[in-house]
Simulated scan of single mutants.
Amino acid sequence: MFAHTKRLQYTVRVTESNPGLANLLLEQFGGPQGELAAATRYFTQYLAEDDPGRRDMLIDIATEELSHLEIIGTIVAMLNKGAKGRIAEGVDSEADMYRSISGAGNDSHVTQLLYGGGPALTNSGGVPWTSAYVDTIGDPTADLRSNIAAEARAKIIYERLINATDDPGVKEALGFLMTREIAHQQSFEKALYSLQPNFPPGKLPGMAEFANVYFDMSQGETPTRGPWNKEPTFEYRQAETAVDGGSGNGEVTLAADEAACVQQAAERLRSDPDSDPQTGAMLGAGGDAAANTSAARQRGGKGGTATLDDGEPRSGGA
C-alpha cells in the first residue's frame, strides 16, 4: 500500500524561472540515471525478493526514489512556471515568444510547446523514458552490483547539474538528492557483502583452468600490468587460439540427409574466385573510367562478353 504525504521530503526553493535548467533536470526525471528508473528497478526487485532484509531495504529505497522523483518534478515545474504562464496567456509578441522558448543553447522549446512546461517523462534530449532502463536480472549479487553502479552514475549526474546552476535553492536540493545516492550506494554494498559467498554471481562455478587467466589481447605498446592482470590473482598469458586444445574451428554433426542438403547448397552458391565481373558501379562511371576498365579487361581479364544497355558488346569477365 502507498499513501502520499503532500509535503516534500526536502524543501525546494527556486529563485527565478529558468526553462533551460529545467530541461537539463529532466535527465533525472525521465533519463536512464533518473529517479523513475531507480524507483522501478528497486520496486521490481523487491517484488521478487525472498530475503526479508533485502526485501525491506528495496521497497524503502524504491519508495524514497519516488519521493525524489517528486522533488525533481517540482523543481522542473517551478523553473518552467514563469514561461508556462507567458506562453499560456500569449502575453508576448510572436517574435519575443519564439526567442524566449528557443532559449540560448538549450532545447527547452520541446517541453514548453509539447508539454506546456510540465515535467515530461523524457531525458534532457527529449527521448521518452523506457523500461529498458531497468536492468534487473533476478540474481541478488548481480542486481546489487548493478544498483551500486546506478547510484554512482546518478551521483555523477547530480554533480554535473549542481555545477550548471547558480540558483542557491536548486543547488541545495540537488545536493540533498546527490547525498542520498551515496547513502543508497552504501546500503546496497552492505547488503551485497552480507551475502557470502557473493562472487561469482549465480550458482555455477567457472572453469577452474580459465577463471583466473588474463589474456593480453592487444598488440603493440608494452602492456601496463596491475592488480587487474597480474599475480597472485591472475596468470598472465599472451593471446591464444584454441585454448581448449581443440582445432579452433566450428564443428557440427549433421544427419546424413542434412549434410547432403548443406553440401548441395554450398555447391550451388559457390563463388568463382577467378572471375572479375563488370559491376553496375563500373557501368555507371562512364567515360574514361568505363573505357579504362574495358581496356584492362581486354589486356588481362578473363574471356567473355557482356552487352551494355547501348547494345555494344564489351570484353568482360564471366
Score class of each variant (00 low, 15 high):
residue 10 Y to F: 15
residue 10 Y to N: 10
residue 11 T to G: 02
residue 11 T to W: 00
residue 15 T to Y: 11
residue 17 S to Q: 08
residue 17 S to H: 11
residue 18 N to T: 07
residue 19 P to M: 00
residue 20 G to F: 00
residue 22 A to I: 03
residue 22 A to F: 08
residue 26 L to K: 08
residue 27 E to R: 13
residue 28 Q to L: 15
residue 31 G to Q: 07
residue 37 A to S: 14
residue 40 T to F: 03
residue 41 R to A: 15
residue 42 Y to N: 04
residue 47 L to C: 02
residue 47 L to P: 00
residue 48 A to F: 05
residue 52 P to F: 01
residue 55 R to H: 13
residue 58 L to S: 05
residue 61 I to F: 07
residue 64 E to P: 10
residue 67 S to W: 04
residue 67 S to A: 14
residue 67 S to M: 13
residue 78 M to G: 01
residue 79 L to T: 07
residue 82 G to N: 10
residue 84 K to C: 06
residue 84 K to T: 15
residue 87 I to H: 12
residue 89 E to Y: 13
residue 89 E to A: 12
residue 91 V to Q: 03
residue 91 V to W: 09
residue 91 V to T: 15
residue 101 I to V: 15
residue 101 I to W: 15
residue 104 A to Y: 06
residue 104 A to L: 05
residue 104 A to E: 12
residue 105 G to V: 01
residue 107 D to K: 08
residue 107 D to M: 13
residue 108 S to F: 06
residue 108 S to K: 04
residue 109 H to M: 07
residue 110 V to N: 12
residue 112 Q to L: 02
residue 112 Q to W: 10
residue 113 L to Y: 09
residue 116 G to P: 10
residue 117 G to F: 09
residue 119 P to N: 06
residue 120 A to R: 03
residue 120 A to P: 11
residue 121 L to V: 02
residue 130 T to A: 10
residue 130 T to E: 08
residue 134 V to Q: 08
residue 135 D to G: 14
residue 138 G to Q: 04
residue 138 G to D: 05
residue 139 D to E: 13
residue 139 D to K: 12
residue 142 A to V: 11
residue 144 L to M: 02
residue 146 S to D: 04
residue 147 N to H: 12
residue 148 I to G: 02
residue 148 I to D: 01
residue 149 A to I: 07
residue 149 A to M: 09
residue 150 A to C: 01
residue 150 A to G: 12
residue 155 K to E: 11
residue 155 K to A: 14
residue 155 K to P: 01
residue 157 I to F: 10
residue 163 N to H: 03
residue 164 A to L: 10
residue 164 A to K: 12
residue 167 D to Y: 00
residue 168 P to N: 01
residue 168 P to I: 04
residue 168 P to Q: 02
residue 172 E to A: 12
residue 178 M to Y: 06
residue 179 T to I: 00
residue 183 A to N: 10
residue 183 A to I: 08
residue 184 H to R: 13
residue 188 F to I: 06
residue 189 E to L: 14
residue 191 A to K: 01
residue 191 A to S: 10
residue 192 L to Y: 09
residue 193 Y to F: 14
residue 203 K to M: 04
residue 204 L to P: 03
residue 208 A to Y: 01
residue 210 F to Q: 05
residue 213 V to K: 12
residue 215 F to N: 02
residue 216 D to N: 15
residue 218 S to N: 11
residue 221 E to T: 10
residue 221 E to K: 14
residue 223 P to G: 03
residue 224 T to P: 03
residue 225 R to H: 09
residue 227 P to T: 02
residue 232 P to T: 00
residue 237 R to N: 07
residue 240 E to A: 15
residue 243 V to T: 11
residue 244 D to A: 07
residue 245 G to V: 00
residue 249 N to F: 06
residue 249 N to G: 02
residue 250 G to N: 03
residue 253 T to P: 00
residue 253 T to V: 12
residue 259 A to G: 08
residue 262 V to T: 04
residue 266 A to W: 13
residue 266 A to D: 01
residue 271 S to D: 01
residue 272 D to A: 04
residue 273 P to K: 00
residue 274 D to N: 14
residue 276 D to T: 11
residue 283 L to R: 13
residue 286 G to Y: 06
residue 288 D to P: 07
residue 289 A to N: 05
residue 290 A to F: 11
residue 297 R to A: 15
residue 299 R to V: 13
residue 299 R to S: 14
residue 303 G to N: 14
residue 303 G to D: 12
residue 303 G to E: 08
residue 305 T to S: 11
residue 307 T to K: 09
residue 308 L to Q: 13
residue 310 D to M: 11
residue 311 G to E: 06
residue 311 G to N: 10
residue 311 G to Y: 05
residue 312 E to S: 15
residue 313 P to K: 00
residue 314 R to S: 04
residue 318 A to C: 09
